[in-house]
């Protein structure tokens, strides 16, 4: 499993970092900015990590919500504060990468404006349909769409729309895409029979268990832990995927020892049973702590992938 190798790598980094650099500590309260409003997954996750980090390290970690543009408002501010490890920001890759791809001139920061401390988790994005839908995979959905004169598919973020457009371009399925605001709204439309298929990032799992929904594909690069038999979009013959990572960053130019100490504190917080359980419960995925180097590489690879999504 990919995650296990990641974990091993992280454990190794943590050990070496822990010995050499345990002596950095913040000179006051550390601010953890959340790029979303109160009440979302990112908010819940960030607050849990902050609480766990605070308890384990004795640092005073203060969580502040800085909503706006899926994290763009928060990262814009984060790029301007001093790189002293006293201000951190937590966001999701997709909105940031999409904006950096589509309107790079208007976004006042670049990937290099930040030092990347750690990943938190990968959101598992699925394409689902109602149990009694007359299709079980993407090929079936495409055929159904052609027959019906356009299947309705609900999405809640730009990359999902692009992924469907990509498949549409390859198959001429004629999908009709319905833009929604949240997983909950997609689920409501799907269960109510208002759309034929929908994207979802976790909220659908209980309905898979109850048998009301079935999963058509994993939109990630890998299959999902709870549904190992459902193939990814790539495996079903369309060379495209969407991987939204939750991650924590700080302004670029952080002193090396601060970077290692904070990254380790995040890893430790994620490894604690309480956080692990909470992430399982809210996100239906395991926490992942890739460490600074891999997080940076993940973002750079992600930017390239989003470029492909947009055909740039």
């Amino acid at each position: 499993m990919k995650i296990k190798t990641l974990l091993a790598a992280v454990a190794a980094t943590c050990l070496s970092a822990g010995v050499a650099l345990a002596d950095w500590s913040p000179s006051g309260p550390v601010k953890l900015w959340i790029g979303f409003g109160a009440g979302g997954e990112t908010d819940t996750l960030g607050r849990l990590i902050a609480k766990e980090m605070g308890e384990a390290t004795g640092w005073n970690i203060v969580v502040e919500n800085k909503p706006g543009g899926g994290g763009i408002a928060m990262f814009t501010q984060l790029a301007t504060v001093p790189a002293d490890g006293m201000t951190l920001g937590m966001g999701v890759t997709m909105p940031v990468l999409v904006n950096l791809t589509v309107r790079p001139d208007e976004i006042p920061f670049k990937l290099a404006s930040f030092d990347y401390l750690n990943t938190v988790a990968l959101a598992q994005l699925a394409i689902v349909a109602k149990k009694d839908a007359p299709f079980d995979d993407l090929a079936g959905l495409v055929a159904y769409s052609k027959e019906k004169g356009g299947a309705l598919v609900a999405f809640d973020a730009k990359p999902q729309e692009l992924l469907m457009n990509f498949i549409d371009g390859e198959t001429e399925a004629g999908f009709k895409l319905v833009s929604t605001k949240s997983s909950a709204e997609e689920l409501q439309q799907l269960l109510g029979g208002h759309v034929d298929a929908a994207f979802n990032a976790g909220a659908h799992i209980p309905y898979l268990e109850s048998g009301e929904l079935k999963m058509i594909a994993s939109a990630n690069a890998s299959r999902h832990s709870y549904a190992p038999d459902t193939a990814t979009v790539q495996e079903q013959g369309h060379d495209i995927y969407v991987d939204p990572w939750f991650y924590i960053a700080a302004p670029a130019g952080l002193p090396e020892e601060a970077k290692m100490a904070i990254s380790k504190a995040i890893s430790d917080a994620l490894a604690s049973d309480a956080t692990k359980e909470a992430i399982m419960n809210t996100m239906h995925t395991e926490p992942s702590m890739a460490g600074p180097e891999d997080t940076k590489m993940m973002l750079e690879a992600g930017l390239k992938n989003v470029g492909t999504l947009f055909g740039k």
Partner: peptide, 22 residues
């Protein structure tokens, strides 16, 4: 049906969630 009708209800969902209740 497990769908929040407001932000307040969405917050209750996340509270349910962190206690392992779906």
């Amino acid at each position: 049906i497990g769908i929040p009708g407001s932000i307040g209800a969405a917050l209750l969902i996340s509270a349910f969630n962190i206690h392992g209740i779906q």
